[in-house]
Design a protein around this nucleic acid. Structure first.
Lengths: 158, 158
DNA sequence: AATGAAACCTATGAACC
DNA sequence: GGTTCATAGGTTTCATT
């Protein structure tokens, strides 16, 4: 029987998440031994964490430059008006543009922050002109090149 | 013998990456059958992609709210001066702050964009005051709440 | 580089404590 | 929850091409 969605995470769950956050591809066997759990218990708990949505998914991270997209940028997008359906539709549109990695919908002067990786400056301009400012609701954009992107310490850091 | 770092990706590599990007936890067997490759060939190519650094790593993604950090923000950080060692040291410091998910070092008015997930507004203020503006080189910050964050179409989208 | 088959290892589920 | 065990399934190696 799965735990109710609102159950708090116990110490074991947090320990599992802490290890999985650093080593997502550890085998269940190694994970169980690391935490002194039975393999079946460990597998059961990890499955439960996935079913409860606490672990959303597993992803690989590509080296953007190695696959031909060495230039990254954050494109700030400001809107002319902020009616609900307009904002949502633009959010959808931005997220579906090739080479877009993430789209942040934020509160403030900028409405969206669009993180992209592209092959060169021309491709960056093309995204801004053809996929962003092309929307009438977009009042303006401001592009910042990304020198470097690092992972932070994360949620479970002390 | 691993391929030299500069070798271009062939069609098969791109097909593998396209599948893995969507389903990182697919088994090697299923992946091989999907692309009509022998299992051994498929395993070998994926291993090579990892060794070449094209696949950087595998990560789980947590549901931030479920683990107690329902509030996300982007904190823009502006510096007073931009001497190399200072900037690098601050980059290191920001990336090691608990609850920081990502740090972008960017070119523009803002020098860093710090993406955080926190338990509440108080925790957000504490990060800004105790971990960011505490550095003398930081001239100012501007915090934007994140309403929603979406994945983009990604690098391999057509 | 790719293949198929064997050998090896891991994950899974049942029965029980 | 934990333990044990049996089975199914996945991964790795290697001789071959």
């Amino acid at each position: 029987m799965p735990k109710p969605p609102g159950s708090p995470l116990d110490e074991t769950d947090l320990a599992l998440l802490a290890v999985l956050t650093r080593e997502a591809d550890i085998t269940n066997k190694a994970l169980a031994h690391r935490l002194n759990l039975a393999e079946s218990t460990c597998a059961h708990r990890v499955r439960a964490l996935r079913e409860r949505g606490i672990i959303r998914d597993t992803r690989i991270r590509l080296d953007e430059a190695s696959v031909g997209y060495p230039l990254q940028a954050i494109i700030k997008v400001r809107l002319a008006n902020h009616t609900g359906p307009t904002v949502t539709a633009l959010f959808d549109a931005l997220a579906s543009v090739p080479r877009v990695l993430q789209v942040f919908h934020v509160a403030g002067v900028d409405d969206f922050l669009v993180h992209v990786a592209v092959e060169d400056a021309t491709a960056l301009r093309d995204i801004v002109l053809e996929h962003i400012t092309v929307h009438p609701v977009v009042r303006g954009t401001e592009t910042q090149l990304v020198f470097e992107l690092r992972d932070g310490a994360g949620l479970l850091a002390r």
